[in-house]
Design a protein around this nucleic acid. Structure first.
Lengths: 197, 197
DNA sequence: CCTACCGATCGGTAGG
DNA sequence: CCTACCGATCGGTAGG
């Protein structure tokens, strides 16, 4: 990957290290070492260690939101009122963002708790709003009889947790390309919701 | 909860803090402060910070393993050759251990990576062996036609990730008792595996 | 369980 | 981007 800016290079390296060792387990000097500069030199590009975490988490959140926007728009135009299609599109969008930059996505999933109080509250609200999209699609499916009766809150949390779990084992050079993984998770998700005939 | 030994009190407090802030984000002095003693005083009871993490992770691993042993024995005696029953029993066992001590279970799920090389390898092997029990039950179900065709590795990882996700939101004082949560996850798991008729 | 202390490392600043 | 440095905190030890 070609680095456009030094700032971007810092965030890429930080995503990798934060994913592997966590935010608290990674020092500014660890990040600097991976870039072959002195720790203090990073402060020419970033204001604080937390700013780096925030940049990663905020960008990842925006990617997930934008992908869900596209997914919902696509379903609304092609297959309006089809809850299975809505869930499938959201699952595909989520896995696509997750696999496009698995380091960044992993940091978003696991390290947002290390943010300061205010930023953590902002991300929590965005996570809640994001999960609500899945929950509404599930509620819609239950309402029209397409999905089995379930607690929509548990189902949506469980589904999202399962999707995020892909970040812990996905390997861009692994046996399964991202598209095939998305296929599998769409299958698992829909079976989980639709249940037996 | 009454504390039998000081060592146990240290591990309980550490489980809570490791879950909230992570192992790297928790200092020995944080643990000591929660027990109203000086940081150095803890070293009368533990050899190192990592020993505390190891004690928690090792105990949690043993609990999951023992519960799965019981589950498999119970199914073998009551309903041998019933893969749905086998998966249901494993799911119930997992949720039972997870909800019995959600701090300890969360540390097992998330913080084992902070262990040193050798201990991390030991836990990784035990985690793999544990996941293999779920995978075998799923493979068995596919072989006898009880479950839909799926990639058993993806299905077992996804299932376990979904189960572990309960640790992030389970609240002993919440609206759902542990038993009801287990019921829901058994339903979701079996529907995910059995698929449509 | 305490005080006193160790060397190492932390996030970050000053000044070039 | 560097050197030099700051105060704070880290895991851990000595000695009582």
């Amino acid at each position: 990957m070609v680095e456009l800016t030094r700032r971007q290079a810092i965030e890429d390296v930080a995503s990798d290290l934060f994913r592997e060792r966590g935010y608290a387990g990674t020092s500014i000097r660890d990040i600097a070492r991976a870039l072959s500069v002195q720790g203090a030199s990073l402060y020419a590009h970033v204001d604080s260690k937390e700013d780096v975490l925030w940049a990663i988490v905020d960008r990842a959140a925006s990617r997930f939101e934008a992908a869900a926007d596209d997914a919902e728009r696509g379903v609304a135009s092609r297959r309006p009122g089809d809850p299975a299609e809505a869930v499938a599109a959201l699952v595909r969008a989520h896995i696509q963002v997750l696999t496009a930059d698995v380091d960044e996505a992993s940091v978003f999933v696991h390290e947002w708790r290390a943010l300061g109080e205010m930023r953590r509250a902002v991300i929590l609200a965005r996570r809640d709003a994001y999960e609500a999209r899945f929950r509404r699609a599930i509620e819609e499916g239950i309402a029209v009889g397409a999905f089995a009766m379930t607690d929509p809150a548990i189902a949506s949390t469980t589904l999202l947790t399962a999707l995020n779990g892909v970040a812990t084992w996905y390997d861009p050079d692994g046996r399964l390309p991202a598209g095939r993984i998305a296929d599998h998770l769409v299958d698992l998700a829909l079976r989980m919701l639709e249940g037996r005939a």
